[in-house]
């Protein structure tokens, strides 16, 4: 694939998802687009690109974008954020809000392991929070992974990464060769297709937002825009969970990093989005 084609494809992906395909990631284009080219009846990726250049095809452009998203995830990934939720965030939240609904959003929830991990954790902790009810929303740009997430079906390989076997026994049913989360856990999570590039404020307000290992794919202005939009959807001191390699530093002053809990940020009290100069 020549440099022009790589740049052309990178722009398609960037325009739709905000994902920046760096030169080092260009090698992924070949391996991920080859199956699409084959499926659509092209002899090669080069053929696919030249056809696309000649005739705008939004459906194809989205297929390409979808193929370039990263869906790597597993149950209780990195563990620490879930410990932080359990040991710090929930008790603190309870001190502030003893009754009512707590809304949690997993932004870029991929195939659903993160929101379902939270649902299992909340199930374990529920007796400590009798006045609170929890509502979890998962969104992802890819319809394909949203559908998989909704099904709650996972392969034997997927349920063995990060999930203790006691949780497998407690929360899953075996369905043929797959494992499916029980209805009481599935019903706690609502999945929707959603693009972080778009205005997602219609999702409502959230007390807790998980946005882990997502911002790393975006450029600085996009990161700042997404973080500030999230801030408008949270109450003062709402909680934002970022991935281990991510930070709000240098992007926005809408969040404070938590002194004792790494990777958890709180929405600055009274913060409002600065007006454009």
């Amino acid at each position: 694939m020549n440099k022009d084609d790589i740049e052309y494809l990178a722009k398609i992906v960037y325009d739709r998802s905000g994902i920046v395909l760096t030169q080092e990631k260009a090698y992924l284009l070949e391996s991920r687009l080859a199956p699409i080219a084959r499926k659509e009846g092209f002899n090669s990726i080069d053929d696919l690109v030249s056809t696309l250049r000649g005739r705008a095809d939004e459906k194809m452009a989205w297929q390409i974008t979808d193929a370039m998203t990263t869906n790597e995830t597993f149950f209780f990934r990195d563990k620490t954020p879930f410990d932080n939720l359990k040991n710090h965030v929930l008790p603190e939240l309870k001190a502030r809000k003893s009754a009512g609904k707590v809304r949690i959003w997993c932004a870029a929830s991929s195939t659903g392991q993160e929101p379902y991990s939270i649902a299992m954790l909340l199930n374990e902790e529920a007796s400590k929070y009798p006045g609170l009810s929890f509502e979890i929303t998962g969104t992802d740009i890819s319809n394909r992974v949203v559908e998989k997430a909704k099904s709650g079906l996972y392969s034997q390989f997927e349920v063995q990464r990060g999930l203790p076997v006691t949780s497998l026994v407690k929360y899953f049913d075996k369905v043929d060769d797959m494992w499916q989360l029980k209805p009481n856990i599935r019903s706690q999570v609502t999945f929707k297709q959603g693009n972080l590039q778009d205005d997602f404020t219609s999702l409502g307000k959230f007390d807790i937002i998980f946005c882990r290992n997502v911002l790393i794919y975006f450029d600085q202005p996009t990161k700042a825009k997404i973080l500030e939009r999230m801030a408008t959807m949270m109450p003062d001191n709402g909680y934002l969970f970022l991935g281990a390699a991510e930070t709000v530093m240098g992007l926005t002053d809408a969040f404070n990093s938590s002194r004792e809990v790494r990777g958890v940020y709180t929405r600055q009290a009274g913060w409002t989005r600065a007006k454009a100069a």
């Binding site: 563990k79 390989f157 063995q160 990464r161 990060g162 203790p164 076997v165």
Partner: peptide
């Protein structure tokens, strides 16, 4: 204490040891 369903690989063994 834990349970691995074959086939397994290094990732699964490591994940279970972490558990």
């Amino acid at each position: 204490n834990e349970y691995i369903m074959k086939p397994f690989d290094g990732d699964i063994i490591e994940a279970k040891l972490a558990e």
